[in-house]
Write a protein that binds this DNA or RNA. Sequence first.
DNA 1: CTATCGTACAACCAAATGGTTGTAGATGTG
DNA 2: CACATCTACAACCATTTGGTTGTACGATAG
Lengths: 105, 105
Amino acid sequence: MSDADLDRLFQAFADATRRDIVARVTSGEYSVSRLAEHYAMSFAAVQKHVAVLERASLVTKEKRGREQIVRAHHDGLQRARRLLDEYETIWRQRADRIAGILAEG
Amino acid sequence: MSDADLDRLFQAFADATRRDIVARVTSGEYSVSRLAEHYAMSFAAVQKHVAVLERASLVTKEKRGREQIVRAHHDGLQRARRLLDEYETIWRQRADRIAGILAEG
DNA sequence: CTATCGTACAACCAAATGGTTGTAGATGTG
DNA sequence: CACATCTACAACCATTTGGTTGTACGATAG
């Protein structure tokens, strides 16, 4: 996974509106305009947020009639989790190393 | 945890240099200038990246003589992980719900 | 004391971000 | 058909971001 991919992924999470969109489309079915009803901003603004999430592989869009259904795409979330898990592993290794040194001394 | 806190947290992760800094200071001890040696940018730029990480509660700085030691601060990482875990939970619930419907039908 | 090192911070700049309005096209409805 | 709905996208704007250089100041070394 490239640096640019990770940049897009975390950047996508770095906005409360987008996090809310992810939460909504994960548990229910929403068109772009349905999503837009919930936020105090223009339809176009919400459209842009969805586009950011799409580029980050956090959601996909599927055309249904004249609507565009936004669906959660698990890949992005899993990748983000995996990276944070790696950091956690590094942290644990450090903690173990320190514990080892204390045990020796 | 406020929206603004989460914004800062994920924003902090949304840059390859900053992710690298987090990885480095988690496993070793680095002053700001030591960190700066590793990147193709000015000392001031690295200083700014550290400041972003500090505001996101991902690192802390501690003065030691004329140096400023950058240390990983586990809180930020844990909080980010917790949020992604919540999304994962929502996802699983959805998956279970779908599986339940399929089992019925 | 003087010079150097590590840091802090201001000023500046280009590019990206997050919002707006307006226009246009495709699809469904009376 | 005529009209409303949903979406796409361009143009624009203010603010933030990620970088730069330059200046200043405390701490250490010679």
